[in-house]
């Protein structure tokens, strides 16, 4: 017996899928932010060996499909290292790494957007390199980076939909399940699309609000 019609339980399923998507998105964003910033700081300090290595890694991660990266981690790593990788672990590793690569680029350009003269005068005032990074560069770079960062996160939210291919039961996977059960693709994918759209708008709105706050010091206050 097959239930071809929609039931009220489907709402719970969709909410569950959205929850999984959101949880993975938020977790990988936080890890990606940390990792990407650390990579950018390593580049800022020009650490030998490490910084060119990171540049190559970021280039590889940015210029290859996330789907292939997912397959490499989910199917490749277990075969190479003889370990078990669950779909959720593979998704966490891949999405964090991918997000980190893009955040690295944004962070590097944000650091470079700050004039050398500022850094030099801060050094002349006797601030250490760490103090320069913490008090001069970080606040300005943050205000610079928040715009591109919002765009990136909206994009990364959509990238999370790919993890359904390796079996994580996220919103897209739920859509697949409902589609195969009800055979009403237009309704199912429209609802799933609408949920993604609403979430993306929420992320964009959050980014815009944060940007306004971070740039408040240089905002036009009126005459």
């Amino acid at each position: 017996m097959r239930y071809t019609s929609f039931t009220s339980y489907d709402v719970v399923l969709l909410a569950q899928g959205l929850g999984v998507s959101l949880a993975l998105f938020l977790t990988t964003t936080v890890i990606g932010l940390l990792l990407g910033t650390i990579w950018a700081v390593i580049r800022f300090y020009r650490v030998p060996v490490l910084s060119p290595l990171i540049a190559v890694l970021a280039e590889l991660l940015k210029n290859s499909p996330v789907l292939v990266q997912l397959f490499l981690v989910f199917f490749g790593l277990p075969a190479l290292l003889k370990i078990n990788v669950t779909p959720v672990e593979a998704a966490l590793i891949t999405l964090s790494g991918n997000t980190a690569a893009f955040i690295y680029v944004i962070a590097v350009s944000a650091i470079e957007s700050i004039g050398r003269d500022q850094i030099e005068s801060a050094r002349v005032f006797g601030l250490s390199r760490w103090q320069v990074l913490r008090h001069i560069i970080a606040p300005q770079a943050m205000a610079f980076a928040i715009g591109p960062l919002t765009g990136l996160l909206v994009n990364q939210l959509q990238v999370t939909s790919l993890i359904s291919v390796i079996g994580v039961v996220d919103l897209t996977k739920i859509g697949n399940i409902l589609n195969l059960r009800t055979l009403k693709p237009f309704i199912v994918w429209t609802i799933v699309g609408a949920l993604y759209y609403a979430t993306a708008k929420l992320v964009a709105f959050g980014g815009a609000t944060l940007e306004k706050r971070l740039r408040a010091h240089s905002a036009w206050k009126g005459l």
């Binding site: 939909s161 291919v165 859509g175 693709p185 994918w189 429209t190 993604y196």
Partner: peptide, 17 residues
């Protein structure tokens, strides 16, 4: 703002419908 895979499934499963 909608993931490509969702758009793709929309067309792939929807068009025959």
């Amino acid at each position: 703002n909608i993931p490509f895979i969702v758009q793709l499934f929309f067309f792939f499963y929807g068009l025959p419908e």
